[in-house]
Amino acid sequence: MYALFWLVDQAVSLYIWALIIAAVVSMLMQFGVLDRRNRFVWAVDDFLFKITEPALRPIRNILPTLGSVDLSPLVLILLLQAFRIFLTTTLWPLVA
Rank of each mutant, 00 (worst) to 15 (best):
Y2G: 05
Y2T: 14
Y2V: 14
A3G: 07
L4V: 11
F5W: 05
F5P: 08
W6V: 13
W6R: 10
L7R: 01
L7Q: 03
Q10C: 15
Q10K: 12
A11I: 13
S13N: 10
L14H: 12
L14V: 11
Y15V: 10
I16K: 12
A18G: 08
A18W: 02
I20V: 15
I21A: 14
V25N: 11
V25S: 00
G32K: 02
V33H: 00
R36E: 00
R36W: 00
R37I: 02
N38G: 05
N38L: 03
F40Q: 11
V41W: 00
D45Q: 02
D46K: 13
L48T: 04
F49N: 06
K50A: 12
K50M: 10
I51K: 06
E53R: 13
A55I: 01
L56I: 01
L56W: 11
L56V: 07
I59E: 09
I59L: 14
N61P: 06
I62A: 12
L66E: 09
S68E: 10
S68K: 07
V69W: 15
S72M: 08
P73S: 04
P73F: 05
V75F: 13
L76T: 09
L76F: 07
I77S: 07
I77A: 05
L78S: 15
L79G: 15
L80D: 03
L80V: 09
F83W: 14
I85W: 15
T88W: 11
T90Q: 14
L91I: 12
P93G: 08
L94M: 13
V95S: 01
A96D: 06
A96C: 08
A96T: 07
